[in-house]
Amino acid sequence: TLLRLAASVEQLSTHILARAIVDAAHERELVLSLAGDFEENFGKGVRGRVPLINEDQWSYQLSTNNEHENAVAPDTAPEISTAKEVPEVSVAVGNRTFMLQLGIALPPSLVAEREQRTALGQICSFVAVDGQIVGLIVLEDIPRAELARLSPDLKREGIQQTVLLTGDGEIVAQQVGQAAHIDRVVAHCLPEEKVRVVQELVNQKHRVLMVGDGINDAPALATATVGMALGTQGLTAAANAADTVLLSTDILRVVTAVQLGRRVMRIALQGIWVGMGLSAIAMLFAAFGYITPAAGAILQEGIDVIVILNALRVGRFKVKANK
């Protein structure tokens, strides 16, 4: 039930951890409710009001304990409507900072549990129901084996430095960074801090490619030289801020996108210089009377066809094999 309530709120978020919680609920075939009064504090947590269902008896009991204690006497009780209203509870899911902002006290036992889990490289989110902490959701980010190819493949394509900007803790960030052979890792990174790091690189005259997968990354995507939105969820804000969109959620496709971009630019420049060069030579011959106007027009059409045929080579793009 705790997972169902948390996932009902998280399903409205675009954060990658929210997707993991929702996926876990779907795997267990839990019925999610549509949360109302939804609010998201980017990088910190979410909250909303979730309608209860029959399986949520403990939650309903939690929210009605005080009501039973303060019940009025039968002779003074107001008339009760026969219409049944669906009970709701306020659900908040997020980190310690988010809970403190909401004025929710953190039980020492769960705080200690969180410290133990984060020391193992796991990610923890507190869950509060009606202003009381009722549990801890633990997630573990297991890097895929092929992630080790990411940074080396990018460097083969001319990328000089790779930087990981993440809101995860230091331990998790370093684990992912080592698995992907990232040059620089910045942990506990909120959206505004991502913008600051990207802006610093831009100010140092670097051409920055920023890859992000959610609304949290939108400001940094807009700041970078080239912003690339990754994945199909949350693309309303990210895609508007980005220069290009990859519909796949596979981070390794970024390498393919860089390869394709470089090939397109190379062929485009070839078309420009070949077209201008042949046209200039033809104009010189025409100026000295070696080419008649009619022949010059036909020759120009031939040059255009050559440039077009050269551009069609982009369609024969194949992903480079990893060495």
Rank of each mutant, 00 (worst) to 15 (best):
G227K: 00
A222M: 11
G234K: 09
V211K: 02
A222F: 06
G212I: 04
A218M: 07
A220H: 10
A229E: 01
A220G: 12
A220M: 12
T225C: 02
Q233K: 14
G214V: 06
A222H: 09
L235S: 13
G231H: 08
V208G: 06
V208M: 07
A237K: 08
T225A: 11
I215E: 04
M228L: 15
G212S: 07
G212M: 04
P219Q: 12
A224S: 13
T236W: 05
A222N: 10
L221E: 05
V208S: 07
T232H: 10
Q233N: 13
L230I: 11
N216L: 03
A224H: 07
N216R: 03
M210K: 01
A218W: 03
A229D: 01
P219C: 12
A224R: 06
L235W: 03
G212E: 01
D213R: 08
N216V: 04
Q233Y: 12
D217C: 13
L230R: 09
G227Y: 00
V226P: 00
D217W: 10
Q233S: 14
G231I: 08
G212Y: 01
T225I: 04
A238N: 07
I215K: 03
L209H: 04
A238M: 10
M228H: 00
D217V: 12
G214H: 09
T236Y: 11
N216W: 03
D213H: 11
A229F: 04
I215D: 01
A238Y: 04
M210L: 11
A229M: 02
V211H: 02
M228Q: 04
M210G: 01
T236P: 00
G227R: 00
A237L: 13
G212V: 04
P219R: 10
I215G: 01
N216E: 06
P219F: 06
T232N: 12
L235Q: 14
Q233P: 00
L235M: 14
D217S: 13
G212Q: 02
